[in-house]
Design a protein around this nucleic acid. Structure first.
Length: 578
DNA sequence: ACACGGAGCGCG
DNA sequence: AAAGCGCGCTCCGTGT
């Protein structure tokens, strides 16, 4: 039964006997109508409703539900991810009545849902739920939880901001699923060339690549230890000491400062070893199929609101391998990253005019030099990072006081966040994502260290852990707000690209699957960087859309702010090595 | 046999 | 030039 009133929300959940229930709600949350469909009908029903009414789809968990729709070629434009939004509302300082948020939806942040898109059994929800720490998928549970969310949001201290956050987080969930479905176009032959250039040709399984074996031999000779196991840090450290290289660790930055014939081949070996184990031939075999690398993106996977990833280390692809990202024939990669996103976000949220001016229309670090605050760009960069991360020593410790003098509003904001954290308090991002409370043991240690009978070592330990927490909360407000900016950017960009026309597919890879694979679409996201995979004819328009979305994100989060967010943007067939 | 923490290194 | 934030992954070594 369909209502003549267009639903504002459509709640999806498990119904009776393995069927899926869809419940339409009006804008006030009143039930308009409901129906149940079988597994085979779900995608077509969703597709029809999306075309008719474009409701906000409400479901327990986006990967669980949306992967199936994408596999059937169906996309939706908006959703409300109950699991992700629960996690935000549960801790947000903006929410006054948190009691309405039920514990049943708590999922540990370090235990996100697994990838259910590949070969997931349709309606295998019990298995999924068992793995995800028990997010309920039933329709009644979803309806009840949504009602709690509405109460929490409507009664919040700053509804507008929280609503932006809720919408952005949910849009991110859709985008993450779509990024996985689209995959990163990956040139296996180029990847193999890069490996061969560094390691030599691919060896048979279990064998060390020839050039790497050669490097290892050079290291052993230089250290006078023909049996040395270089991969064992303790043994390597002892061998270094025997060769009178007095390092405290085997890390490359420390080794680099020593002059000894073993150092150069050892550093080369470490690079080779890293490349082989992290992104070698085994990585290609496991992660690249039919010209696509499909990482699992995990929205909300980081406490600050940044995304995490799982599978193949998508967010740590070495620059060395960037040329392996290659557009399909007749397509382009439109790559864009924001110049100095975090300091710009800090300037905007603190309303620091001087900092906004330093970054206006150009490189923020050069702007700080031009303002006469520091002498070199490098000094500016180290100082700003020190301000964001809480650096106290070295160059950063020397520069930060000058920044405090010239950017008082910005520094007051991060210094305040640090002070709150040191006291055990909670801080929040611009849109209202709040930092986790300290663990009970932390608070207890702080308290007992202040008692008269506390031993000096205990006091020092407590002070150090208070400073540790202060650096975390200092960075939380900036990193978390930057993540909100990036989500808003992505969401605006996705909306714009959805308006592009599909182009006739000449390549089999584009002929099936979701419609977005046949027009310009997002292919990669990394904190402050996006790559759009676009038909050549749409590349310029995609670039314009990326720029417009950055403008939109800035004015959405910081209306009237003078802070701008300039992009470095390139249109290429192959991702530049940088 | 497996779990887990630390070291080390890649990314922002 | 590795101080200071957030991650994932692989390896080793140790503990069970």
């Amino acid at each position: 039964m369909t209502s003549s009133t267009h639903p504002a929300w459509c709640v999806v959940g498990r119904g009776a006997e393995g069927r899926t229930a869809l419940v339409d709600l009006d804008a006030r949350g009143e039930r308009l109508s409901s129906l149940e469909v079988g597994p085979a009908e779900l995608a077509s029903v969703v597709s029809r409703r999306e075309a008719e009414a474009r409701p906000r789809w409400v479901w327990s968990d986006t990967p669980t539900w949306y992967a199936r729709l994408l596999a059937a070629g169906v996309t939706v434009s908006r959703c409300h991810d109950l699991r992700l939004i629960h996690a935000i509302l549960r801790h947000s300082q903006l929410v006054r009545d948190g009691g309405a948020i039920r514990d049943a939806w708590d999922t540990p942040i370090d235990q996100p849902p697994e990838d259910r898109s590949a070969g997931a059994t349709l309606f295998d929800l019990d298995a999924s739920s068992a793995r995800t720490g028990g997010v309920p998928h039933d329709i009644e549970a979803a309806l009840a939880e949504l009602a709690h969310h509405r109460v929490a949001i409507d009664g919040a201290e700053d509804r507008g901001r929280l609503r932006l956050l809720v919408a952005a987080e949910s849009a991110g969930a859709l985008i993450a699923a779509e990024l996985h479905a689209a995959g990163i176009p990956w040139d296996v032959a180029e990847h193999d060339r890069i490996l061969a250039a560094s390691l030599g040709p691919r060896p048979s399984p279990g064998q060390t690549p020839p050039q790497m074996a050669q490097t290892a031999a050079e290291v052993r000779t230089a250290l006078g230890d023909p049996q040395l196991s270089i991969d064992s840090p303790p043994r390597l450290l002892r061998a270094l000491h025997r060769a009178e290289i007095d390092v405290e660790s085997t890390s490359q930055w420390e080794l680099a400062s020593y002059d000894h014939p073993a150092i150069e081949p050892l550093l080369r070996y470490k690079k080779q070893s890293r490349l082989l184990t992290a992104n070698g031939w085994a990585w290609i075999d496991e992660w690249v199929h039919e010209g696509r690398y499909r990482p699992v993106y995990v929205p909300g996977g980081v406490v600050t609101g940044r995304w995490a990833s799982s599978g193949g280390g998508a967010l740590q692809i070495p620059r060395q391998l960037r040329p392996a990202l290659r557009a399909d024939d007749g397509w382009r990669l439109v790559s864009a990253d924001v110049a100095q996103l975090e300091p710009r976000v800090l300037a905007a949220m603190s309303g620091d005019r001087a900092m906004a001016t330093a970054g206006a229309g150009k490189d923020l670090y050069s702007g700080i030099v031009d303002a006469g605050i520091v002498a070199t760009r490098q000094e500016a960069k180290v100082g700003v990072l020190g301000a964001l991360y809480g650096g106290t020593t070295g160059d950063s410790g020397r520069v930060v006081p000058r920044l405090r003098q010239n950017f008082p509003d910005a520094m007051r904001l991060v210094d305040g966040a640090a002070a709150t954290g040191e006291r055990g308090g909670t801080v929040s991002t611009w849109l209202g994502r709040s930092s986790p409370a300290p663990e009970a043991a932390w608070t207890q240690n702080q308290t007992s260290a202040n008692l008269p009978d506390a031993v000096p070592g205990e006091q020092e330990r407590a002070r150090r852990s208070a400073r540790d927490r202060g650096r975390f909360t200092r960075n939380f407000v900036v990193q978390g707000t930057a993540a909100e900016w990036a989500l808003s950017w992505l969401a605006a960009l996705r909306l714009a690209l959805a308006g592009f026309d599909p182009v006739p597919g000449t390549d089999a890879a584009h002929a099936s699957g979701p419609v977005f694979a046949r027009r310009a679409h997002l292919a990669f996201f990394l904190h402050d960087e996006v790559i759009v995979h676009a038909p050549a004819a749409q590349a310029d328009a995609a670039a314009d859309a990326i720029r417009a979305a950055a403008e939109a994100a800035g004015s959405l989060l910081f209306p009237g702010s003078p802070v701008d967010f300039p992009l470095d943007l390139t249109i290429t067939e192959r991702s530049p090595a940088k």
